[in-house]
Design a protein around this nucleic acid. Structure first.
Lengths: 254, 254
DNA sequence: AATATAACTATGCTTGACAAAGATAATACG
DNA sequence: CGTATTATCTTTGTCAAGCATAGTTATATT
């Protein structure tokens, strides 16, 4: 079998190699950077199969362990996927914006982002997002949003609260904008909000009030009511602000 | 030395362990998930030192190789940092939003995001960002922006173009909003834009026109001219749109 | 007292061997 | 002849033991 990866030899040739990335100190990182560069340059495209670990190991002239660690990092970064078995191997991953969400979440949990920032982000951006959704939504988006509303309504009618879906409605609004970057960043912000608010007390009347907002948002999107949408979203966030404040006053520390 | 990580034993106890994350198939992933969970739960806080590889290996009852792979993945994900030497080891990383940028870039290079989406994101969000900057900028932000303008102006006066800084001005606007999530997502979008437009031809008159926009943005931010800012940014993006279109017509494929 | 050296602790790298998964080909058997 | 089982082959996954290297600390030498 022939692989179009002789270019990797650029590594094997130079013990002190020329890496485009600022010099990684250890060998696995160097190997990883070379493969990463090949992917960035599209010499390796999504779906492409890399040589086997054994083959790569020989090409890079590194040990099995190092090769595995380099590939492991690329897997962790979501750039490649590995499959076992006879037809297995390492494959360049399809671009999926799922990882954006995870990284933002990581950052939040490490204290690199505060909940205030996240909510501030939403408060300022979501009005625009709703406006965009009004302009761009397709019929399938309306169906999607409607399904969410129905699910939440059924829960409320039974006296329960579907908190997950009720918050998720906001993510779906972003999805209806048909912009991956927007959907990812809003998705992350909303996921963090959801994780945070899940600790807050939430009464049935409050939930119903929240749900009514979602219904109003839906009507705006359906009927392309741009300006009304904006005001509504602003009002909604004034409310959220109060909820967070109340929580903070209940539990002053942290 | 005593580590407060006996909780890790929850793994060692169960050969078939209970991982919060949906079952990772291989051992390193399981170990990684457990450590990740500990970080998420803040049982391990940024700056905390993990036990040595040897110690962890014993606690998790896994081989050295597996332990290293698990830690390697956490490093790749930016959750921990490793240092060599006597006082070395694995340390929980401080939250840094730098990784968000990398992941978005990865996603773009894998085809998970198109340049159209990125520009669309900017066109819709940046007017708000500029507006926010008008309201929130501090004196230090004005200095930062001014320094950028000076650098670019000097280049133009010498007949050269400082493309990097001229685009970077937009990132600095986002920074002036004092919201990490906003700065990160806009930073990523702008970095991708920059990478893309670096392939476009760019004449000196065009660069000057672009620079004048930056100067106008600065005046808005300085004097809190919200509404003017918005119109300006919209106009600026109409221009960018044309530039991209021209590029596409020059090079129809890709 | 300043400097070189040794010891210690931790990560980094190598090698070799075997296990397990997944696909294919060969074989046995109805 | 067709199906089911078994063997085999490729590739990733795991283990183990040892040595190399970095960085700190203590010790010895001058």
């Amino acid at each position: 079998m022939k692989y179009s990866l002789n270019l990797l030899m650029e590594f094997a040739m130079n013990t002190e190699l020329i890496v485009p990335d600022l010099g990684a100190s250890n060998i696995p990182d160097k190997v990883r950077d070379i493969l990463k560069t090949a992917i960035y340059d599209r010499r390796l495209k999504p779906g492409d199969k890399l040589p086997s670990e054994e083959e790569l190991r020989k090409q890079f002239k590194v040990s099995k362990t190092v090769m595995r660690e380099a590939l492991g990092q690329l897997v962790a970064e979501g750039l490649i996927e590995k499959r076992r078995g006879a037809l297995g191997g390492s494959f360049v991953a399809e671009g999926n914006s799922e990882r954006i969400l995870h990284v933002v979440l990581d950052c939040y949990h490490l204290g690199g982002l505060t909940i205030e920032e996240v909510i501030d982000f939403r408060r300022n951006i979501e009005p625009i997002v709703l406006e965009m959704a009004c302009a761009r939504r397709e019929d399938s988006d309306l169906d999607m949003l409607k399904t969410n509303l129905d699910t939440c309504r059924q829960a409320l009618e039974k006296g329960t609260i579907d908190r997950h879906n009720q918050v998720d409605f906001h993510r779906l609004i972003a999805v209806a904008c048909h912009n991956g970057l927007l959907a990812s960043s809003m998705g992350a912000a909303i996921k963090i909000s959801r994780e945070f608010t899940s600790k807050l007390p939430f009464s049935l009347p409050e939930a119903k009030e929240d749900f009514e907002y979602n219904e109003k948002f839906f009507e705006c999107i359906k009927n392309n009511r741009f300006t009304q949408a904006r005001e509504l979203m602003a009002a909604h966030f004034e409310r959220s602000k109060m909820l967070v404040k109340r929580y903070r006053s209940l539990d002053p520390k942290k």
